[in-house]
Amino acid sequence: MSTENVIEVKNLTMEYSTRKGNVSAVDNVSFSIKRGQALGLVGESGCGKTSIAKSLLKLLPDNAMIQQGQIVLNGKDMVPLPEEEMRKHRWSEISMVFQAAMNAFNPVYTVGDQIIEAIETHLPDVSEKDARVKIENLFRMVGLAPEMVDRYPHEYSGGMRQRAVIAMALSCDPDIIIADEPTTALDVIVQDSILKEITTLQDRLNMSMVYISHDVAVIAEVSDRVGVMYAGRMVELADTEEIFIRPIHPYTYALMQSFPSVTGPKRELVALPGEPPDLLHPPKGCRFHPRCPNRIEKCDQEQPEWKDYGDNHFCACWNPMEIN
């Protein structure tokens, strides 16, 4: 594993402006990913995971604004790039597997045509024949019959479609893939096999990945490093084993508590009363303070600092769990 950072996100802050006010969906988030590394982003629904994913591709709706921060992809900051420039980096350097794979394909074209079109756009030197061969190989890799290339999306089952989406994401040899809850909509058995497929592929192609899920078990399975999100902020970031053995942030701790063992039965998040805050009016200071058992005086006044706890373990909390 080389030490070169494929992507570096520094102090990313993004808001949606709505009629009721601004939604602070991503606040001051930083992380970086090395080649071949898989970062898992975990957090409850609505904590801004998808917003981060879409910011990375700058694929945001009209009402979204990146307030500050840098997204350095292969040494180049994407944030100031105009749309037409950004477009060329998409898929060739950074691609995405969407949350709703069911409708990720246009119903009126064959799946093959929709993948070829990406290859044609970013790799104009590849002939149509070679592109086809490449797609057929990708299909084999993700466990689809090569004949499926010429089929229409409605001829695919949900699981097959998700595999095809993965094949499409790989089609232009990106440096990094973002997978946003790629298996959430699928049934458990399919979910498992696709998850394995993704990890195998990622290892084999030595690709970087951001894997997003609300499910700690899934994250534990696929990622080398885990970032825990709460209410638009990253509260803890560490290597996977480290964070499971030694969670520092009270929220991470509670999250881990609800999954005593990755393979064991799932328990409810009993330790945490209350609900995640409304991002229209996020709480002052630490956004977790209304629910936090460790809460101290300054928690509702000052935003906790992002501190290094050694071993590449970072956390933002004024009163962390005891460190054994």
Partner: peptide
């Protein structure tokens, strides 16, 4: 529709997304 977002993510030119 979702597939329009996919098309954007793929980095296709505006005209292709609009027409095709």
């Amino acid at each position: 529709e979702d597939y329009i977002e996919t098309a954007r993510a793929k980095g296709l030119p505006e005209g292709v997304i609009r027409n095709r």
